[in-house]
Design a protein around this nucleic acid. Structure first.
Lengths: 339, 339
DNA sequence: ATGAAAGCGCTAACAG
DNA sequence: CTGTTAGCGCTTTCAT
């Protein structure tokens, strides 16, 4: 129970062996005699030796830390991903170090910088912007594995793991169209975020494909966190009384939209049909249960983690983009349009 | 754009100054002439110098990392705390490194060990067990600040920041009693977790105080994650048809209970009144909105973080336990009992 | 104000 | 199989 940490030298002194030998048995590399091994292990236990990762990192260049940078770790979508990553990397001895950008490019830049300075062994990032990618070019050249999740950035030679967002937007929209809806709103956020952009593309594609003339005012953007989404929801619904359905771009927007509809006395799905991206447990328990485009969130996280670990082991250099399928989960928030 | 990282030596060589001088200006300590400063800064920028935290840590003993160990980072309660901590520590240059224990003592032990080996500057922990605290004794002696959140452990000289759980359990129970309920169930998990234990104590205290003879079978424990809570919920409700109300010990248990009630065709609050601990956005949007005992989750996180930072600065040694007040948020999931 | 030099705890050649 | 030695990149006395 010595308060100061015991080092290899302490054990070397105590056993009468050299530091190198002690390091070898404790590090589990090189050769060592059984006798030396026993002695060292015994003393190590007695002294309650704990290896100092920092010192090890200093020489190996490995920190056994993986960085995760997302919009908001509080968002269930991202916290699910964090957990999935954790489940993959922790058994391999890695730890997860997380950071939230609030979708601000500047914060993303400084986060990346800091994580690099802290020498993370790998980085998993949900990039804020699909277009402003100058700073990401350095990631491409970096010697540590980097994988982008949830969002694509064009023209970057990096691993990316995202959902089929265009397809998802299309499926959601077509589902509503098939129910008879024509005036369909779209509640989203910054289009620089590729998921928002792609889902909106899918929406537009579906409208066009069905000969529906959409209106720009049906698309409402901007909504920071849930309270922001709420305000956008109120604005969208109050300025467009002709809407019979709205698609929410993610679970935050859905919460905001639902809160807005509730406050405005709109009954779902009678007065308004709603469909949302993401699929969280609570969608099953809302009034009414929310029809959603589910993503394979867990798979997104664990695949990203596995990709990082593989790259760490094999130095593979082929980058690939994986698009995880989305799935329509029909619940009770969409009604056939009576007319 | 040199791929390998540039070091102080590179700048020293380039400027013709010594490494010590360069370190002084870049580190912002000691003295240096304006001339030297300008030169160094210029070259540093040109070479795109990024300090190596690991090397710095090696000598200062500081990693600028704070560890957070919780039951499950995916749980909105904990992810909210994580975000709150992050918001406090990141501006001070720290990063958050997280770990989930799944409420397993063994995992908690190894997590603590690993974080110590990785030399976190401070540790925030939601301890799994209120009784099995042998391993936590080492934390008391540790030279780094440790603060326990959400859960107390008796007889440990550590900072703790928790909610008024006994009081909360009491308030919840009394609220139901005042509505006329007598047969009140309690859905919870492992009682080694102090929140569960304390909330149950509050429940018992309230029953006793109102002359109600509770039954042990009204208390159902065990429910790992939401699916586990669901099974427990089904068991509780099917084995106790006499229950008119149930208290859920946290948001996971609430989700499980609601799912169970739904599957069993029980209408809330007509057939069953429900009240839950935690207060998450989705409680506002469920069918019906859930009456809850809200905790000040954000404050719990930021206070813990501030406490760690203060300890880091001032070496304060007085430990204290803070109990954050809980608040009853009345919504629509509890009905007056007709009889 | 600046430089030389020691050292944080560990790994990894290289000899022996 | 084991010991010696040289760093990893940075901070920090101690001289100059």
């Amino acid at each position: 129970m010595i308060p100061v940490s015991v080092t290899l030298d302490d054990i070397a002194r105590e056993t009468g062996l050299s530091r190198a030998t002690v390091a070898r048995v404790l590090g589990g590399y090189g050769h060592s005699s059984k006798k030396a091994r026993d002695k060292v292990l015994e003393v190590a236990k007695k002294l309650n030796y704990k290896p100092n990762y920092i010192a090890k990192s200093m020489v190996t260049g490995e920190t056994k830390n993986i960085g995760l940078i997302v919009g908001d770790i509080q968002n269930p979508f991202f916290s699910t991903i964090a957990r999935a990553i954790s489940d993959v990397i922790v058994p391999e001895g890695y730890s997860l170090i997380v950071s939230s950008t609030d979708e601000k490019l500047e914060v993303e830049k400084t986060s990346i910088d800091k994580f690099f300075q802290k020498q993370v062994d790998g980085l998993i990032l949900a990039p804020v912007s699909r277009s402003d990618s100058g700073h990401l070019n350095e990631l491409v050249k970096s010697k540590i594995p980097v994988v982008l999740i949830d969002r694509v950035v064009d023209g970057l030679d990096l691993d990316m793991i995202v959902s089929e967002d265009v397809g998802g937007g299309q499926i959601a929209t077509e589902y509503l169209i098939n129910l008879g809806h024509r005036n369909i709103g779209f509640l989203s956020d910054n289009l620089d975020i590729s998921t928002n952009y792609d889902r909106l593309s899918g929406y537009r594609k579906a409208l066009r494909g069905n000969g529906i003339q959409g209106r720009e005012c049906w698309i409402k953007l901007g909504g920071f966190r849930i309270d922001g989404a709420y305000k956008s929801g109120v604005a969208l619904l109050s300025q467009n009384k002709d809407l019979t359905a709205v698609i929410a771009s993610n679970n935050y927007m859905a919460a905001g939209l639902l809160l807005a509809a509730k406050d405005m006395g709109l009954s779902i799905p009678r007065d308004l049909s709603v469909i949302s991206f993401d699929d969280i447990v609570w969608f099953e328990l809302t009034r009414p249960p929310i029809t959603a485009i589910a993503q394979n969130t867990v798979e997104m996280g664990s695949l990203a983690a596995r990709r990082v670990l593989t790259a760490l082991r094999d130095q593979r250099s082929v980058k690939e983009i994986t698009r995880l399928p989305t799935k329509l989960i029909v619940r009770e928030s969409c009604a056939k349009l009576q007319n």
